[in-house]
Amino acid sequence: MDDLSNATAPVAVKGLNHWFGKGDARKQAIWDVNVTVAKGSLTVLMGPSGSGKTTVLTLMGCLRDVQDGGVRLLGHELNGISEAQAVMLRRQLGFIFQAHNLHESLTATQNVLMGLEVHGRHNSAQQVQAARHVLQLVGLGDRLDYLPANLSGGQKQRVAVARALVSNPKIVFADEPTAALDKDSGKSVVEMLKALGQQRGTTTIMVTHDNRILELADRIITLEDGRIVSDEHQH
């Protein structure tokens, strides 16, 4: 792939290595990973437990410091980036984790508003409307004012998805987003992420073990022992 496409790609990873631990306990976890992700695509990272897929995801998503090699995220090189720049970049991203991390004392709508980094108690009517709209998109239009304690595990995870999407992120990083969901909910969440790619150009990079959603992926990258062992474009 030429340099021009690398420059405009939402994520471009070059010669990425990563270690955990210090001294004698230092162990290499990622070996020479090279990936350029196309805008608006749904890319799935697969591999056995301990293969390095979540580490690669967190390095791409500016959640972990790049030690060796290059990661370009939305045109910014992450190796050596300042914390202020990292914060600015993270604001343009959406994150969905296996643990939904909802605030138990806030309603579904209020939890989604947290995705807008809204400070203070008075959210604008427009922001509340955006939060309610995205909850309706994930099928929770009748649960807008429910507390997490009154939602099922799958519903909580959909609130977390809505929180990640409410700010119209340029890239969504998702780590096992369907783990807590039943088959239909899991597929509908991934279909929604795919539709956002087509409608808004949102790029999704997802770690999953979920074979049910592989047919929706544009690309499947498989890691083993910290190395890419296959990289298949689906469509």
Rank of each mutant, 00 (worst) to 15 (best):
residue 1 M to L: 08
residue 5 S to R: 14
residue 6 N to T: 11
residue 8 T to S: 14
residue 9 A to L: 13
residue 12 A to H: 09
residue 13 V to A: 00
residue 20 F to Y: 15
residue 27 K to A: 10
residue 28 Q to K: 12
residue 30 I to S: 08
residue 31 W to R: 05
residue 32 D to H: 02
residue 34 N to F: 01
residue 34 N to G: 03
residue 34 N to R: 02
residue 34 N to H: 09
residue 36 T to V: 12
residue 36 T to G: 04
residue 36 T to M: 01
residue 37 V to L: 12
residue 39 K to P: 02
residue 41 S to G: 02
residue 43 T to D: 00
residue 43 T to C: 04
residue 45 L to V: 01
residue 46 M to K: 09
residue 50 G to V: 08
residue 50 G to L: 10
residue 52 G to E: 00
residue 56 V to M: 10
residue 60 M to R: 06
residue 61 G to F: 09
residue 61 G to A: 13
residue 68 D to G: 06
residue 69 G to F: 03
residue 69 G to K: 08
residue 71 V to H: 03
residue 75 G to W: 12
residue 75 G to M: 12
residue 79 N to M: 07
residue 80 G to K: 10
residue 80 G to P: 08
residue 82 S to C: 03
residue 83 E to L: 04
residue 85 Q to R: 09
residue 86 A to L: 11
residue 87 V to D: 12
residue 93 L to Y: 08
residue 93 L to A: 09
residue 99 A to V: 02
residue 100 H to Y: 15
residue 100 H to F: 15
residue 101 N to L: 08
residue 102 L to R: 06
residue 102 L to W: 08
residue 102 L to Q: 07
residue 104 E to C: 00
residue 107 T to R: 14
residue 107 T to Y: 15
residue 109 T to Q: 12
residue 109 T to R: 13
residue 109 T to I: 02
residue 110 Q to R: 13
residue 110 Q to I: 03
residue 112 V to T: 10
residue 116 L to T: 01
residue 118 V to P: 00
residue 122 H to W: 08
residue 123 N to V: 11
residue 125 A to Q: 13
residue 126 Q to V: 05
residue 130 A to W: 10
residue 132 R to I: 00
residue 133 H to A: 15
residue 134 V to F: 12
residue 136 Q to R: 15
residue 140 L to G: 13
residue 140 L to I: 08
residue 140 L to W: 10
residue 141 G to W: 06
residue 145 D to T: 09
residue 147 L to A: 14
residue 151 L to R: 15
residue 151 L to T: 13
residue 151 L to Y: 11
residue 151 L to H: 12
residue 152 S to H: 09
residue 152 S to C: 10
residue 154 G to M: 11
residue 161 V to G: 13
residue 166 V to P: 10
residue 166 V to G: 09
residue 167 S to A: 14
residue 168 N to L: 11
residue 171 I to V: 15
residue 171 I to W: 02
residue 172 V to H: 04
residue 174 A to S: 07
residue 174 A to F: 07
residue 175 D to M: 07
residue 176 E to P: 10
residue 176 E to S: 02
residue 177 P to L: 06
residue 179 A to C: 04
residue 180 A to Y: 02
residue 183 K to Y: 13
residue 183 K to T: 13
residue 185 S to P: 00
residue 185 S to W: 07
residue 188 S to Q: 13
residue 188 S to H: 05
residue 189 V to N: 09
residue 189 V to L: 11
residue 190 V to R: 13
residue 194 K to S: 12
residue 195 A to H: 11
residue 195 A to F: 02
residue 195 A to Y: 10
residue 196 L to D: 13
residue 199 Q to N: 14
residue 200 R to Y: 06
residue 201 G to C: 11
residue 201 G to T: 14
residue 201 G to Y: 11
residue 203 T to W: 11
residue 205 I to H: 08
residue 205 I to S: 06
residue 206 M to D: 02
residue 206 M to R: 01
residue 209 H to S: 03
residue 210 D to M: 05
residue 215 E to F: 06
residue 216 L to E: 06
residue 224 E to Q: 12
residue 229 V to H: 02
residue 229 V to K: 02
residue 230 S to V: 07
residue 230 S to G: 10
residue 233 H to P: 00
